[in-house]
Design a protein around this nucleic acid. Structure first.
Lengths: 212, 212
DNA sequence: CGGCATCCGTGACGATACTG
DNA sequence: CAGTATCGTCACGGATGCCG
């Protein structure tokens, strides 16, 4: 977000908004929290952003030290963008926005785009609230799959698609259940009890969720 | 912030940015966390905002349920703007932005405006870290005074000027010390020990800060 | 005088087209 | 695939004027 125009205020919140307050910037961070991504993939998961604005933001963010651009080793040799450690520190900001925004979420509007991994942080909170936030958790939705690294200190907090290794827990639910969990209207343990969330796996998270 | 243009994404963070992502909106919230304020005072403590944008934001925020406009009882009969409970729930968002932005604060630039109460949330964090976040605390800086309601569940978290009643603790420090505390480079207890922060009062917070 | 509304110049944004 | 170029529109910032 770095608005080209700084607020010029000696205030840490204003400084943060100088860096990440521009339109799209924090949503780009949300995308990169899933790990390194290519330009085209970012563009696909940020419906509405124009190509020039996305390119411009990625440059701004690199200048600000939020992201780096890296060329993958051949074969492939494509460019990927990823968060720096400093960029990853924005996770609490997205968390706070997500908690507050849950109250604004409501029902899905016809004009709303959806991606499975947009539910990653809300579900991570639900897991934390249920005392089941440990290890690798795979989540399967109609919109697609993603996985959570629940106790991870560094590196991506979540990722696209199925878990790269056998996860400690696998969750499967429908869109309505996922939305209700995200809005905080439904408790994860209750949802499991009512059979709205199917839990498999034998990690500590799976066991914690299954015990009534 | 409510960008006139919604992101149209079924994601709680995106919804939050729809509501508070516009330029100036979160800084207006920062100002209103100090309690009800008049248009002119808001304009004075938000250097750089143009009159029409401020008026427009205040209308947007009222539409979104973040603020209310109220006419004070005569004499005076001026309008004041204040946060709704929903608007006050944005405190964690400003907290998270402030924590992250502390790393961007650095030295004060010649172009930077300053207001004493912009240090309220950083100092509240410093008090919390020092285990002295209870009761009414008055802070005196060169730039001006403000007070903190450290344990307050509802209502304004901080206010302008001196404390309305006798505070449990009174802190006095210079600008450099306050900035170092805000950046997290200096520990409040250390600062007290070194005499960079003068503590008076006999509340639990004052006692906690004075005991080495 | 406080609280805006209006006007205007500049820049940011979004859509589309195009290029290496 | 990964952007750059172009362009119309709208948001922003600054100044000024109006109105209770």
């Amino acid at each position: 977000m770095s608005p080209r125009r700084s607020y010029d205020q000696y205030c840490s919140a204003a400084r943060a908004l100088d860096a990440v307050g521009d339109r799209w910037t924090l949503l780009i961070v949300r995308e990169l929290l899933a790990g390194p991504r290519r330009y085209t993939d970012l563009h696909a998961d940020l419906p509405g952003v124009s190509t020039d604005v996305l390119a411009s933001r990625l440059k701004d963010m690199e200048r600000e030290g939020l992201t780096t651009r890296r060329r993958l080793a051949p074969p492939g040799a494509v460019h990927v963008y990823e968060l720096t450690p400093r960029g990853e520190e924005l996770l609490p900001v997205l968390e706070a926005l997500g908690v507050w925004g849950a109250g604004e979420l409501g029902e899905r509007r016809p004009t709303d785009a959806v991606r499975a991994h947009w539910f990653a942080l809300p579900l991570l909170r639900a897991l934390r609230a249920a005392g089941a936030s440990e290890g690798l958790v795979e989540v399967r939705l109609e919109e697609g799959d993603f996985h959570l690294r629940a106790g991870a200190g560094d590196g991506p907090v979540y990722g696209h698609g199925r878990a790269p290794e056998e996860p400690g827990a696998r969750l499967e639910m429908d869109a309505a259940t996922c939305a209700a969990l995200s809005r905080g209207e439904l408790d994860l343990r209750d949802a499991v009890r009512e059979g709205r969330v199917a839990v498999t796996g034998d990690g500590t998270a799976a066991k914690a969720l299954r015990e009534t």
